[in-house]
Structures are given as C-alpha cells and as structure tokens.
C-alpha cells in the first residue's frame, strides 16, 4: 500500500468516525478503533492512542455550544473528574500490562462488550424526557449539586438537584478506567453515572459528560504518550478527520430528524462490536 493511499484511508476513516460518532451521540473513539484495527489493520495500541487524543478535540470543539446553552454543570463535572482522571491513569497502566503480555485478544473482547452495551442506553435516552424526582441528601448540600437550565421545548427554566455523589464518583472511576484501557471517551458510562447514579436531568448529564471527556482523555493520553501509543502519522489524519467529521455531523443533527439514520448506524456498530468480540475469540 502506498503511503499516500494509506494516509487518505486514515483520513476517510477519521471523517466517517467523527460523523457517525456525532450523529449517534457515542463519540468518535468507539467507532474509529474498530475501523482502524479491523479495516486497516492498525495495531490496537496506535488505534487507541489516535482515538483517545482525538476525543479531546471533539470534547473541546463542542464546548462553545454547551457553554452558550448553560447546560453543562461545571461544578458537578469537576467534582467527578477526580475519579475519572485517576481511573484513566489506572486504565492506561492496565492496558500497558495487558499489551506487554501480548494479550491483545482480551482488549478486543472487552471493547466489543463495551461497544455493545453502549448502544442500548443510547436508544433509551431519547425516549426519556423531563426530570421529576427531587431527591436530595447530604452530598447535595455539601457538593453544591444543583443548577438550572432553560428548556427550550418546555419553554421554562428548570431547577434541578443531584444526589448520591458517592455513587456518581464510583461510576466515574469505572468510566475513567474504561477510557484509559480502551482509548475511548466512555461518555455513555459518564451519562449513566450522572443520570442513574445522581438523578440529574438528561440534558445536563450529556453536556456535562462531554465537558468531562476532554479532561479524562488528557490524563489517559499523557500516559499513552509515555507508553509510545501515539504514532504521529496515524494520529494526525485521525484527529483531523474526526474534527471535520464531527463538525459536519453536529450541523446535520441540528437541522433534521435523524432517527432513521441513527438506527442504521447503530446496526453497523452492533456488527462492528460482534466482529471485535469474534476477533478477540480468534474465530475471525
């Protein structure tokens, strides 16, 4: 394969992953890693390195939107970052230990399972709306787990409270480990931690999760950097592609209903997940 063709393929995979990641709400990483490894045969460390660093770009690039709408809760996000950053460091070190022993198939299997289980809640979250319960406990007061946002569909300002900070923190530690282990943003787990764990409204959890992904990925990427998982010429076209693709995806997302396209991509992702598991089990 000539280097120019190879470069163009990496770029195309990046654009496609950014586009689908933005439309599906799963983020680019969970898509770009199967694409790079299964389609292009990129070593999984380099795929994970390129993916994790690209995750920072999509998180930071989307920041303007959530700051404008005042949806992300910076306090709640920051308090949970203590666990995600430490988790990401641990996850990256676990990955290094697994790779050092040559147990690549374990990563493939875990990746497939995480991808499959990410698809399910993405379907459910669109059916849910509104926020009813007003649960509070001592962590609500101590960690100032409250906020308000303007709901454009209900045309009113909604005041909300979060509780069970410790449960959110525990889920975030896991989200951080998965992020560092696999090289993904693990936004779905972050949303679960805040939605199911802390009972925060969905609009707040998705944008807060997006804010958190960049900080988590910065911790994981730094360890990846020292481990040598960042191959500059694989990372560069991937990052460029994902930035361009997710920007295009977010434009389309604002303009039209995309539920059918989303369903189509979910099926593709489910196939990719099964393929990763089969590869891990050495069937493929």
């Amino acid at each position: 394969m000539s280097f120019l063709v190879y470069f163009m393929l990496l770029l195309v995979v990046g654009v496609a992953a950014g586009f689908v990641g933005s439309l599906s709400g799963l983020g680019g990483g969970v898509i770009v890693i199967p694409a790079l490894t299964v389609l292009l045969g990129v070593p999984i460390q380099y795929a994970a390195g390129a993916s994790l660093i690209a995750t920072i770009a999509t998180s930071s690039g989307a920041a303007s939107a959530y700051v404008k709408d005042r949806l992300a809760n910076i306090k709640i996000g920051m308090s949970l970052e203590i666990a995600t950053t430490l988790g990401a460091i641990a996850g990256a070190l676990i990955a290094a230990a697994i790779y050092a022993k040559g147990l690549f198939h374990i990563i493939f299997i875990i990746f497939g399972i995480v991808l499959l289980s990410s698809i399910l809640p993405t379907f459910m979250q669109y059916k849910r709306s509104g926020w009813k319960k007003l649960n509070t406990d001592w962590t609500t007061k101590f960690f100032q787990l409250e906020g308000k946002y303007y709901d454009s569909s209900e045309r009113r300002t909604i005041r909300y409270f979060g509780y069970r900070w410790w449960l959110g923190e525990a889920v975030m530690a896991l989200a951080g480990i998965i992020s560092g282990l696999l090289g993904i943003g693990s936004g779905v787990l972050k949303v679960i931690g805040m939605d199911w764990g802390m009972k925060l409204p969905m609009k707040v959890t998705t944008s807060t999760s997006n804010f958190m992904i960049g900080v988590t990925a910065a911790a994981g990427s730094s360890v990846y950097w020292a481990l040598g998982y960042i191959q500059p010429f694989i990372a560069a076209p991937t990052v460029i592609g994902i930035i361009v693709g997710s920007f295009a995806g977010s434009r389309i997302l604002n303009r039209s209903k995309v539920s059918k396209i989303r369903l189509f991509f979910m099926i593709i992702l489910a196939i990719a997940a099964v393929e990763m598991i089969l590869r891990g089990l050495k069937v493929l």
Binding site: I53, S60, V215, A218, F233, A236, V239
Partner: peptide
C-alpha cells in the same frame, strides 16, 4: 510539528482546569 500539535491538544483541557 505533528507532535507539537498533539501536545497543544492535550494541554487544552488542562489549561481549562
């Protein structure tokens, strides 16, 4: 140039913090 670009990317959320 590529390495500096990637370092700037990692630094971005850190500066945010």
């Amino acid at each position: 140039f590529i390495f500096v670009g990637l370092m700037v990317l990692i630094a971005t959320p850190i500066i945010r913090v």
